[in-house]
Write a protein that binds this DNA or RNA. Structure first.
Lengths: 119, 119
DNA sequence: TACCGTTATATTGTGAAAAATATAACGCCC
DNA sequence: GGGCGTTATATTTTTCACAATATAACGGTA
């Protein structure tokens, strides 16, 4: 296929991968990174800030994930020591691990397809 | 991972796959379907109508693809018998075949990942 | 020659998604 | 008790991609 490309250009296969339920997206790369930031920072608002995302957007994403999962992925506390906070539940930790692995398999797929472009 | 989902729901892996160059997207599923419609209908405007897309959008996509490829993927004629028309070049036909195959490999990947969700 | 359907291109209108803003409630800590 | 930072939620504003519209040129054909 490389004979189709303009010469000397760096073309590559790229894409997006997600898990969707009957009504809505369940997990994608953005939601995954948000979960990881919540894991790191202990708060939805700090996670949102770290991702350059509005708090409302982050909260809506968390709400969507929690609503679709059998057990919530994120637990939150209002008020208290430093105003409250959020953390991953065991289900959330498991979801992060398994979906991160899925993303890595996808990265392998994309690398193989990119290599095939130049065969 | 299925133990994370709300019971009895139909979750599945889904995604999008494309080929990108240094500046812009080169081929995606929408561009592929547009090329196939041009192949079928012999015109950019008919292809756009068949896809529920504005002519300008379709023309911009064709222009982007032609600009990035070593040889144009679509050839167009202005004026003449029925006002003109468009057709795939040999390079365009090859691009459709190869990228369609790439999409099918991606569909296989998605099916395998969906199956894995319920392992 | 006038007409037609198309390519080619610019400009304007529009609607949906996202950000920004606002407000309330909560519970620890000084 | 008052302040603080957070969650939770609604409303307003902004942005941006896309559609819609407009216009010109082209070259067969009747």
């Amino acid at each position: 296929m490389h004979e189709l490309f303009a010469e000397g250009q760096a073309f590559r296969a790229n894409g997006r991968l997600w898990i969707e339920g009957p009504a809505d997206r369940f997990l994608g790369i953005g939601r995954l990174e948000l979960l990881e930031q919540i894991q790191t920072t202990g708060s939805i608002s700090k996670a949102a800030k770290a991702m350059g995302m509005s708090y409302k957007k982050a909260w809506d994403l968390v709400s969507s994930m929690n609503a679709q999962a059998r057990q919530p992925l994120v637990g939150a506390q209002v008020g208290g020591a430093h105003g409250g906070g959020a953390a991953l539940t065991p289900a959330g930790t498991q979801a992060v691990a398994e979906f991160r692995a899925m993303q890595e398999r996808f990265a392998q797929f994309l690398a193989a397809e990119t290599a095939r472009l130049y065969q």
